[in-house]
Design a protein around this nucleic acid. Structure first.
Length: 645
RNA sequence: GCCCACGUAGCUCAGUCGGUAGAGCACUUCCUUGGUAAGGAAGAGGUCGCCGGUUCAAUUCCGGCCGUGGGCUCCA
C-alpha cells in the first residue's frame, strides 16, 4: 500500500508499523524527533500497525502542541510507575496532560511530602534512563477488570465501568501497566525534561462528596531549554504577584480583623481606582449610557421574584431590618429593573442603558479567595441594556467595540467565547436563536475570532465571555455580555410599541472590566506594577539635592499640582541617589531633580521611569511632556480622557 | 466547604531538640549638605495569629478556631 508522508509517498507492506513508514520518508533527525503520528483524526503510536485505510501519515514532533501533550501524558504514566514502586499500596486513578504540564491523582494512606516528591522525581529519572518501551495491547473490558481487580486498583475498575466501548487499551512500560487510550512516546527515554512541582488535594472526579485524592503536579517539555524557560516564567510570575506588589506599592491590604476576601484600599490604590472609575463613567456617558445607583440591600421578596433566591442563595448574604428580611446584592440588575419600571416606556425611549459601578457581595467559598482576583466584595462596572429586539445586534456590536477599545488601551490581547443554550434553560427557541444569532453576527462583523462552548450558556440566555491575555500569557475572564430572557419576564417589563401594543424588551447584562478589583490585580501583574502615566497614583516626584533647594521645589510642586499633575516633593535629608532609588522602586514615571542649576534656571532636571535622563527642562515643558505621556495610550483607540485637570 | 502546608517587629526572614526572642529594610533622633538605584551612629518597636490542654515552665508539644498559600470534573 502507498502512504503519503508530507511530500513523499512511501510503499508500506501490509502489517508494517507506523514507525517503519515514517522512517522511510523522513530524515534521521526528523524521524528521531517524532513521538507519534497522525492519520486523519487518529493519533497513533509509532509502534502501532499501520491501519489499512491510512493514505496519509503525519509525524507528531516532540516540540509541537500535540507532541508536548503526548510527552506530558507519558510523563504522568512514568510518575505513576515511580509512585507504585516507592509506595506499592498507593492506588492510581487518572493522570492527564494539562495546559502547562500534567498531573496524576493517587489514593494513599498518608499525604505525600516534599521529600517524597524528590524521591519520586529521582525514580522517574531512573525509569527514563532505562528507556523501557511503551507497549500497547487491546483487551476486553472483562479482561481489564480482572487485571485491575487483581492489582487492587478500585478506581481503575470504576473508570472501566464507564467506558462504553467493548474493549480497552492497556499500556505497559517496564513493570507498570495502566489503562489508557494513548498514544504514548515510544519509550521512557523520550522523557528528557521534566520536573515535579507540587502536591495538592483533589476530589475523586472533582466531586466534593467523594474521597480526597492526592494530586501530584509536574511539567515536561520536549527539551531542557523549554523547561528552563517555563520555570523562569513561574519565577517571573511570582515576582509580579499583585499581592506582593500591592504591599510594596502601598495600594491595598487585607486584614484578618476586617474579614477575608475584602480589600482595604490605601490612598494610592484608591487614587488609581478613582481615576479608572472616573474614566469609565465618562466613557459610558460618551457612549449613551446613564449613570444610576441602586441600594446595597433589597427586600428578600425581590430576590425571590428575580430567581436569585432559588438559584443563587448560597452565594448571598442576608440580614434583617424591622423583622423584614433583606438580601445584600450580589448583582446590580434588580434596581435597574425598578428604574425601568418607574414609568411607562415607549419604543422611542429604547435602548435604555443603565450603568452602575455597583458594589456587590458574594459568598465565595473560603478556599477560593485569592488576593484581589477572588474576593467577596467587589465593584462591577455593570450595565443593563434594555432594547427592542431589532436593536439587539447594534447594541451587542457596540458593547464588543467598547470592550475592544478599553482592553486595547491597556495593551491586552483577548479571546472571545460564545456559549450557547444549555439543556436546562428557559425561553423560546425563537428567542434563543435570535439572541445567539445577534451575538455571532456582532462577533463576525467586528472580525473577532471566537470559540463556541456548546450548551455552556446561562439558563436564562446565551453569552459572550471575553478573556484577556496578560504579559505572561495567562487568561483572565473579565468582560462578559449576556442576553437575558427571564428578568424582563419576571418583572413584567414592557414598552409601548408603534402600534400601541405592549411588548417585552430584550435585556443585556454586560461588564467591560468585570470587577474593578480583579482588573486592577490583573493589570498589576500584567504591567509588573508599572501603571501607565495617566493612571499611576504619583506621576512626578521632585527630588531636592540639598535643603537649599526646598524653596524652588515648593514652587515646582505648586506649578505641577495646579496643572493637574499628581506630584510629590521629596525634601528629606537624604542623598540624591537614595531618593532616586526609592522613587524607582515605587515606579514613579517622572523624577524631577532640583539643585543649584535648576534653581537658578527656574527649571527641573527630568529623569524618566527606567533611568533615561532628559536633562534640564522648563516647568512648562515638563508639564507638556507629562500630559503628552498621559494622552499617548488614548491615541490608539476611539478613546480620550483628560486625566490632568 | 474539603485536603495539605504555613502564620515570629510595619516588610522580608532567622531562631528556640520546652527555660518568655534576633537580623536586614522601614521608623525616630543625632551627625552628614551629599547631582541620578542604599552616607554614618544611636534608639524605639514583638501577648512569637487567637483560645484551650499537657508541663514546675509553652512562641516551641497536643487540640480547636481564625487567617494566608497551593489545589479540588482541562475526564482511561
Amino acid at each position: 500500500m502507498q502512504v503519503r508522508v508530507e511530500d513523499n509517498v512511501v510503499e508500506a507492506a501490509p502489517g508494517s508499523t507506523v514507525a517503519g513508514a515514517l522512517a522511510q520518508a523522513l530524515s534521521g533527525k526528523r524521524f528521531k524527533n517524532a513521538v507519534a503520528a497522525r492519520c486523519g483524526a487518529a493519533l497513533l503510536d509509532l509502534s502501532a500497525t499501520l491501519p489499512d485505510d491510512c493514505a496519509e501519515l503525519a509525524p507528531v514532533p516532540a516540540d509541537s502542541q500535540e507532541g508536548l501533550e503526548i510527552i506530558r501524558h507519558s510523563a504522568a504514566h512514568i510518575m505513576a510507575e515511580a509512585v507504585k514502586k516507592l509506595f506499592p499500596t498507593a492506588q492510581v486513578t487518572i493522570g492527564p496532560a494539562i495546559e502547562h504540564g500534567f498531573y496524576y491523582d493517587f489514593a494513599y494512606e498518608r499525604p505525600f511530602t516534599p521529600d517524597d516528591l524528590a524521591a519520586i522525581e529521582a525514580e522517574m529519572t531512573r525509569i527514563a534512563r532505562a528507556n523501557h518501551p511503551f507497549a500497547c495491547r487491546q483487551v476486553s473490558k472483562d479482561e481489564a477488570k480482572a487485571l485491575f481487580a487483581g492489582l487492587g486498583e478500585h478506581y481503575k475498575l470504576e473508570i472501566i465501568e464507564d467506558i462504553p466501548a467493548a474493549s480497552v487499551s492497556l499500556y505497559t512500560q517496564g513493570g507498570f501497566t495502566d489503562l489508557c487510550r494513548g498514544p504514548h512516546i515510544p519509550a521512557t527515554g523520550f522523557l528528557t525534561a521534566f520536573k515535579l512541582l507540587s502536591v495538592a488535594g483533589a476530589y475523586w472526579r472533582g466531586d466534593e462528596k467523594r474521597p480526597m485524592l492526592q494530586r501530584i503536579y509536574g511539567t515536561a517539555f520536549g527539551d531542557a531549554g523549554d523547561l528552563k524557560k517555563y520555570l523562569a516564567r513561574l519565577e517571573e510570575a511570582k515576582k509580579r504577584d499583585h499581592r506582593k506588589l500591592g504591599v510594596a506599592l502601598d495600594l491595598f491590604s487585607f486584614s484578618e480583623e476586617a474579614g477575608p476576601g475584602m480589600a482595604i484600599w490605601h490612598p494610592k490604590g484608591e487614587l488609581v481606582r478613582t481615576i479608572l472609575e472616573d474614566f469609565e463613567r465618562k466613557e459610558h456617558l460618551k457612549r449613551g449610557y446613564s449613570l444610576v445607583r441602586g441600594p446595597q440591600i433589597l427586600k428578600r421578596e425581590m430576590w425571590e421574584r428575580s430567581g436569585h433566591y432559588d438559584n443563587y442563595r448560597e452565594n448571598m448574604y442576608f440580614t434583617e431590618i424591622d423583622e423584614q428580611a433583606y438580601g445584600v446584592k450580589p448583582m446590580n440588575c434588580l434596581a435597574h429593573m425598578l428604574i425601568y419600571k418607574s414609568r411607562l416606556r415607549s419604543y422611542r425611549d429604547l435602548p435604555l442603558r443603565y450603568f452602575e459601578l455597583g458594589v456587590v457581595h458574594r459568598h465565595e467559598k473560603s478556599g477560593v479567595l485569592h488576593g484581589l482576583l477572588r474576593v467577596r466584595q467587589f465593584t462591577q462596572d455593570d450595565a443593563h441594556i434594555l432594547c427592542r429586539p431589532d436593536q439587539l445586534l447594534a447594541e451587542i456590536t457596540s458593547v464588543i467595540t467598547f470592550v475592544k477599545d478599553v482592553l486595547g488601551l491597556f495593551g491586552f490581547e483577548f479571546e472571545a467565547e460564545l456559549s450557547t443554550r444549555p439543556v436546562k434553560s428557559i425561553g423560546s427557541d425563537e428567542d434563543w436563536d435570535r439572541a445567539t444569532r445577534a451575538l455571532t453576527e456582532a462577533l463576525s462583523a467586528l472580525h473577532m475570532p471566537y470559540e463556541i462552548n456548546e450548551g455552556d450558556g446561562a439558563f436564562y440566555g446565551p453569552k459572550i465571555d471575553i478573556k484577556l491575555k496578560d504579559a505572561l500569557e495567562r487568561r483572565w475572564q473579565c468582560a462578559t455580555i449576556q442576553c437575558d430572557f427571564t428578568l424582563p419576564e419576571r418583572f413584567d417589563l414592557v414598552y409601548v410599541d408603534q402600534d400601541g401594543s405592549r411588548r417585552r424588551p430584550v435585556m443585556l447584562h454586560r461588564v467591560i472590566l468585570g470587577a474593578v478589583e480583579r482588573f486592577l490585580g490583573v493589570l498589576i501583574e500584567h504591567a509588573a506594577g508599572v501603571f501607565p502615566t495617566w493612571l499611576t497614583p504619583v506621576q512626578a516626584r521632585i527630588l531636592t539635592v540639598t535643603e537649599a533647594h526646598d524653596a524652588h521645589a515648593a514652587h515646582v510642586l505648586d506649578r505641577l499640582t495646579q496643572a493637574g499633575i499628581r506630584t510629590e516633593a521629596d525634601t528629606r535629608n537624604e542623598k540624591l541617589g537614595y531618593k532616586v532609588r526609592e522613587a524607582q522602586l515605587e515606579k514613579i514615571p517622572y523624577l524631577l531633580v532640583v539643585g543649584d542649576k535648576e534653581s537658578e534656571d527656574g527649571g527641573v532636571n527630568v529623569r524618566q521611569r527606567g533611568g533615561k535622563e532628559l536633562g534640564l527642562m522648563s516647568i512648562d515643558e515638563t508639564i507638556a511632556l507629562i500630559r503628552a505621556d498621559c494622552e499617548e495610550p488614548f491615541k490608539r483607540g476611539g478613546l480620550s480622557y483628560n486625566c490632568c485637570h
